[in-house]
Design a protein around this nucleic acid. Structure first.
Lengths: 336, 336
DNA sequence: GTGAAAGCGCTAACAC
DNA sequence: GTGTTAGCGCTTTCAC
């Protein structure tokens, strides 16, 4: 069996309380016994059980990260930041891919609670706000990430989606484009991006050419292609000269479909994405995109979470961070 | 406070032993009390503490997944499979990105042991075999994934790297290429891919044109570009007409650099990658690649791990699975 | 069928 | 400075 604190205490000729104290570096312990205990721990290859300490201390040192899919680069990148920040705080992460399925989410939430995680980061849209609501009732430290539930009094970190949509659109307008299309996915955040798009158009006196130039779909490469196929299939005069896709995957679908249709990007069609994932650098042409400030967002999320762990009654905060336009090679001036 | 098994027992008018039994669905319990207990659990919103049960049962229901970087698509995709298979077994995953840094790896290994995870999947090359060795000594259920340590008697799942290198090369030779280049990274697995490459060349009576056509570097996009820049910079007659990159990221670097150099892929240069990540579909032209059978590999890894958890003394096994050639648009016949 | 009681390996209050 | 002891919330014999 693995050595326990009792084994260490016996071998060192002290009590378990003493061992516990040197372990946690608290209480007054003489240098001599400290050294002695350390030595014995070394010899026995003692590895204190965090499950036992969690039982008493009520801290597991693990936090749950709920995301739609860890295989999705945006969330994988976010997870990496979370992992690093968690580690700084001495914690680690349990990864939960929900596939945006509320049942899966509910199962994971329940599991995480039974595991007594110290807190939850929910970076996956949860359709049923009741799930979050229950978490809050149970006083489980929680922060919503990149997906807020406005009506709920909860912590959240988001990028300013509205502004993101607005600046993407303004940029395209500044390039001289007047026939714009938008492909967004069916999440709340994307509604704000859409609204930013529409308001930017209006502010510049431009109107949406055709209702079909604004479509919602779930965010996959394949769907990006499908929608683009329809949008670009129209006869020359009608087709948009620039498309704003509400995430990079959709945008890359557009890129691929444009090529299929014999259009050159950016000469014949400008495309801009959202999220600024590593994919934007890998596709061709490289993709202009609205960046979410992931590093900042994750850092602030972890900070909020930690505050919430330290004081579960702390006032909830909703923090929104500004997006940033990253220009690459998929956008250019509109032809006259 | 959260309700405990005592609260449930009291409200239901039974003992905690009984509650425990209905919880775990074992022992003989009358339907009546079972119902009653379930009802009370519902009413109290009872969430049994897995940390307490872990303390007695010696099972935490969590496994540690060590990878180089969760933000790397290959490992993110693998993690997703692991997560799904773990879930089927009622477990979840703690993600540990090591950045291939042995110190980080050591810290994580220690942490995971203190957390008393049920097992470890190590999908990150660990330079110091001593780390793994100690794990084995401690009888921690462990399986190495996509990275073996031959000399160690441990479980491992790998793709047949040698064969992967061989079939990639054979394929290029079959297309008529005679001046081949290879870019590999500096991991043990890649050594086998290289050997497959060399043996395939030899078997077909082709020799490596130039020592500079075989280079090792760490596997990043940037390094792929750098190496390609040198390889393709040579005067026409000397430059390879096909390059085998030992992973997709390197291959995509080659693609980008080829474009930079005014070369058309695949007309002027064929490129084949390894891993067949989602990136292969996203870059342009889409990338031919040697696929690791990730789904199979992860499934078998989880199975090995579970066996090892059930019987830590079980005989260790090393399983190697066949790679598969996936042809896309980055490879074509050599020009005459 | 059900319950009493002894752990599991720690922490923390308190006594000395 | 160090030790005693009572939990933390479960599981699991073993009686009854």
């Amino acid at each position: 069996m693995k050595p326990t604190i009792y084994d260490v205490a016996r071998e060192a000729g002290v009590s378990i309380a003493t061992v516990s104290k040197v372990l946690n570096n608290n209480g007054r312990i003489s240098d001599k016994t400290r050294k002695k205990v350390h030595l014995i721990m070394e010899q026995l290859n003692y590895q204190p059980s965090m499950v036992a300490s969690a039982l008493t201390s009520q801290r597991t040192g693990t936090i749950g990260l709920m995301i739609p899919d860890i295989a999705n680069p945006f969330f994988a990148e976010a997870a990496r930041f979370f992992e690093d920040y968690a580690q700084q705080a001495g914690s680690d992460l349990i990864i939960c891919s929900t596939d945006r399925d509320d049942e899966k989410a509910a199962r994971y939430i329940s599991l995480l609670q039974r595991k007594r995680v110290d807190g939850l980061i929910i970076a996956s849209h949860v359709g049923n706000p009741e799930l979050i609501h229950r978490l809050l009732e149970n006083k489980v430290p929680t922060v919503l990430f990149s997906a807020d539930v406005r009506l709920l009094d909860c912590n959240s970190i988001t990028v300013d989606d509205y502004k993101g949509g607005y600046i993407a659109t303004e940029y395209l307008l500044a390039l001289g484009h007047r026939r714009l299309g938008i492909i967004s996915d069916n999440l709340p955040g994307s509604r704000y991006r859409e609204q930013g798009f529409l308001d930017a158009l209006e502010a510049h006196g431009v109107s949406l050419d055709h209702p079909d130039h604004m479509v919602q779909t779930s965010a996959t490469l394949e769907n990006g292609r499908k929608v683009a196929h329809r949008m670009l299939g129209e006869e020359g005069g009608q087709r948009p000269t620039a498309i704003f896709a509400c995430n990079d995957l959709l945008a890359i679908g557009v890129l691929q479909e444009a090529r299929e249709a014999g259009l050159n990007v950016p000469e014949d069609l400008s495309v801009i994405g959202f999220d600024n994932t590593m994919l934007a650098d890998i596709c061709h042409p490289s993709l202009s995109s609205i960046a979410q400030p992931l590093r900042d967002m994750t850092e602030q999320a972890m900070q909020l979470l930690n505050e919430s762990i330290d004081d579960p009654e702390a006032t909830k905060r909703k923090i929104s961070l500004p997006p940033e336009l990253v220009i690459r090679n998929s956008t250019s001036k509109a032809l006259e």
